[in-house]
Nucleic acid binder design. Sequence first.
DNA 1: TTGAAAGCGCTAACAA
DNA 2: TTGTTAGCGCTTTCAA
Lengths: 339, 339
Amino acid sequence: MAAPLKRKHSGSLELIAEAAGVSKMTVSRVLRSAPGFSESTRRKVMAEVERLGYLPNRLAAAFGTAAASTLVGVCVPRLSSHFFGQVLESIDRSFSRLGYQPMIGSHNQLPDQEEIWLRGLLSWRPAGVLLSTKHHSKATLELLRDAAIPIVEFWDLNTSPLDMSVGFNQFDSGYEMGRFAIAQGRRKPGLLGAVRDLQNRGPERFDGFSAAVSQAGAPLAAVEILNDLPGFYAGYYGAETLLSRAPHLDMIYFQDDTMALGGLAYCDRKGIRVPEDIGIAGWGGHEAASILSRRLTTTVIPTQQIGKLSAELLVGRLRGEPVHDVNVVPTRLVPGNTL
Amino acid sequence: MAAPLKRKHSGSLELIAEAAGVSKMTVSRVLRSAPGFSESTRRKVMAEVERLGYLPNRLAAAFGTAAASTLVGVCVPRLSSHFFGQVLESIDRSFSRLGYQPMIGSHNQLPDQEEIWLRGLLSWRPAGVLLSTKHHSKATLELLRDAAIPIVEFWDLNTSPLDMSVGFNQFDSGYEMGRFAIAQGRRKPGLLGAVRDLQNRGPERFDGFSAAVSQAGAPLAAVEILNDLPGFYAGYYGAETLLSRAPHLDMIYFQDDTMALGGLAYCDRKGIRVPEDIGIAGWGGHEAASILSRRLTTTVIPTQQIGKLSAELLVGRLRGEPVHDVNVVPTRLVPGNTL
DNA sequence: TTGAAAGCGCTAACAA
DNA sequence: TTGTTAGCGCTTTCAA
């Protein structure tokens, strides 16, 4: 057979290289701003990159050199969550700015689902991973150990993280609301929660709230933890239950804003005046909380900050910059006119 | 130098291969269920896969053979949107089930941002892409053409899609509400919208609504398009503006549910009875619409179905199955007690 | 049913 | 400052 005529290009870098009259290694250096090329070479190369509309192949880069990967995993409880939507928004924006691509998944609070997601993610050899839980299955921990990549646990603060963490302190958040209720003159506080399984005593902020009011000599006068999903109706009927059992309550700390709105609706329906007869406080800073004429007294979660900081921490670590392992971001009590 | 002692493994597939006493090609076939191995071989191989905890490298697979990629891109306006959160949830679940990994991004309604996102996505050589817009920048169209991968445009129906589309018909959605208003005896309908730029006349469902009431001999008695973001306050003050200009209105079709809730709050505040004095209709089926004692008359968007169908269409096309190009999913009018 | 060889596009390491 | 070589782990093609 005669000498083959085939024009072989080992990748599109080679295309640019030929057009610019240099080697593909030089093109690679220019594109990555790696040292080792002259200004005139850079201009020649960039001109061809523009002209030919070069589209890099990150797949090849990450495959050839694990350290070159700009892929990061992010796992949240649900994609349709109001709060995590905001966190994701912030994470996405931050990673875009920093030149990383997030691969997002959800675990629905199920450790097994997180594990399945992680296994899928790791098959893409990501540079790092952001997890929204403190607790992981044994297999998950093994996978993470073997992967040996930076990890950020975000949302609820983990004070002894696998690697790094960003989040707020649940206890403090509830404690602050407890102090506020006392300062507002409340002396018969009640607590209303809703959880999937009754083993669970509700979020740790309940303990903080309880501690604060107890210390002030006005311990919880009634507690109701419903075996239900938190939401408007759970708040409505929970308030009914709680108040029929303990009619003398002068405030209720609800598990979240949607429940608090349900409680508010119940009070309106029954002619119970808020905040005169009873005070109402929620948690979360849900947009719906401002959808009424009365602004709900609540605690706002710094979702943007959590997202931004999580992304920046991960990238900082990847770049070898010094970063803190444990990062607290405070929640913020926002007084409304319901307490 | 003496013969090198290094034990070379070209990848972890080779590790399994050696342990099972077969070639890595055979292991690859077993793992992909590709034809060409005996049952006994399969068992040997799978035993080693289990024992050694093999984690596939999709990066290598997709890099070596573009057709092997299980990565798909998904772009939505915002990650923190209530509606798109639900669609994403459904897309994510569907792709998980089908063995694909979505890479999610957002464009904030800006064509340029979609283009930037797409460029980043394509550098990972995805198998296909899901876009939530009908309109794309010129550069975006070029990128998509060159990529030559399946595309699904979802949400608002595109009747002449680039490739495939899934969505609801805006006009029909508004038309149905117009018919309903007439059936409820309304004869002086008004329209309240809010848009970012006033070039925009509001969503196409307004045209459908207008057509329906006009055909019934009760044309729009007042229209107000605010230069604002749709939301509770825009609804509240928009209702005030509209009703001061046209106090005889007997119903208002709001751009969405949050605006309708604002309008409802305005009526409550002014002692205007709903639905006796005036009817109120929203759009979207927002969860907040059920947060009140009165259920808002609204139109529900089949977010789950849109997500599921979009993912299934893309995968169907990738698998060479016959699929429809244009797929309509109907919205659903849900009567409440405000109209 | 099984295996060997080649190559996907890039970058680290080394050579010039 | 620039170029050459080798190899990342997988799948396709071809041969046995």
